[in-house]
């Protein structure tokens, strides 16, 4: 187990190195951020002062080494535009994104799992066809379009739902959440639903496919032949077997959902990290972009690790740790 985790961390470090190199040199090629945010009255001397202050007068490889040195001490640099540590900015806005992604995940499971199981049990019924059509639509339609249509329908036309922001939040001391107020949930509903659609479609398809496969296995027949009630056959004997692929895919998707909540956050003006990233890219705020991406890599690695651990809990045949079984 320990060996396994160490290997995972080393892999993550490699990914981090490649990613920071790409972003560092990539953003450098696009343009000089100073010209974007320095005021128009700023003369050459003033510009040089800013450039020197940000360390942009150094050759790019030296900038990179400085950055790596700082990173090793836990310092990801200050945002060019905000002048505060980039990590601080990210942590300030991450809870809103996590909340959105978590709500989307729960929605995808709570709605998608029963729908998929139902479709798997009665694959020829019209109900199953309806479910599968829904999953196809949810999977195919672009997220931004769905978001805009939802705002048009429920906010503009019907006036039922708010279209902007988080609504009332409750301060829990360490984090603010809109999950605990009615107004917050009201605000959360549409963006969370929009964000959950792709995951939901995936859960439906995986649950259906898994169910169709599992229901024909001997162990399900054996459980039935022993008179085990149908509810228990489905709820324990079958469900635990179909959860394995679902956990894998959702675990990997969840990282993606957090990282790319960008679109949904922009549409619903959700004050999360995704929206922050878009703003940072617009002004070439390199430290903020790099810091954000480091966080994303960290998240992916952690999530994959969590999935592997969850996996071994669900399927006893999988035991983590090297080649030894």
């Amino acid at each position: 187990m320990a060996e396994y985790i160490i290997r995972r961390v080393l892999q993550a470090l490699l990914v981090l190195t490649v990613m920071t190199l790409l972003v560092f040199f990539g953003v450098n090629v696009i343009g000089n951020p100073v010209y974007i945010f320095a005021s128009s009255e700023c003369d050459q001397a003033c510009l040089s002062a800013i450039i020197a202050d940000l360390g942009l007068d150094q050759p790019i490889w030296r900038q990179y080494l400085t950055f790596v040195g700082n990173l090793a001490q836990g310092d990801m640099g200050k945002s060019f535009t905000h002048g505060v540590p980039a990590l601080h900015l990210i942590f300030e806005r991450l809870p809103a994104t996590l909340e959105l992604a978590f709500a989307a995940l729960v929605l995808a499971l709570v709605v998608g799992l029963p729908m998929g199981i139902y479709a798997g049990l009665r694959p020829d019924g019209w109900g199953a066809k309806l479910v599968m059509s829904f999953s196809m639509v949810a999977f195919s339609l672009p997220v931004f379009w769905i978001g805009i249509i939802m705002i048009l329908t429920f906010s503009v036309q019907l006036g039922w739902m708010p279209s902007v922001g988080r609504g009332d939040t409750v301060d829990l001391g360490f984090v603010e959440t809109s999950l605990l107020t009615l107004d917050g949930l009201h605000h959360l509903a549409m963006p969370a639903f929009t964000l959950s659609l792709i995951m939901m479609a995936m859960v439906i398809r995986l649950a259906r496919a898994g169910m169709r496969e599992v229901m024909f296995t001997d162990y399900i027949k054996f459980a039935r032949a022993n008179g085990v009630p149908e509810r228990r056959v489905l709820g324990a004997h079958a469900l635990k077997n179909i959860l394995i692929p679902i956990v894998t895919v959702l675990g990997m998707e969840f990282g993606g959902v957090i990282a790319f909540a960008v679109v949904v956050e922009s549409i619903f003006s959700w004050p999360g990290v995704g929206k922050m990233l878009i703003d940072a890219i617009a002004v070439l705020d390199r430290p903020l972009i790099v810091a954000y991406l480091i966080c994303v890599v960290f998240m992916f690695v952690t999530l994959n690790l969590l999935v592997d651990i969850l996996y071994s809990l669900l399927d006893p045949r999988i035991r983590l740790g090297g080649g030894r079984a």
């Binding site: 001997d218 027949k221 054996f222 022993n226 008179g227 149908e230 004997h237 077997n241 399927d315 006893p316």
Partner: peptide
């Protein structure tokens, strides 16, 4: 019928690798 299965009529299957549910103790 369910109340008969296992109580009055039991069944043993061909492949013991497949008869027991792999994820339940």
């Amino acid at each position: 019928m369910r109340r008969l299965r296992g109580r009055k009529i039991a069944m043993i299957f061909q492949d013991p690798m497949m008869t027991l549910n792999p994820v339940l103790r």
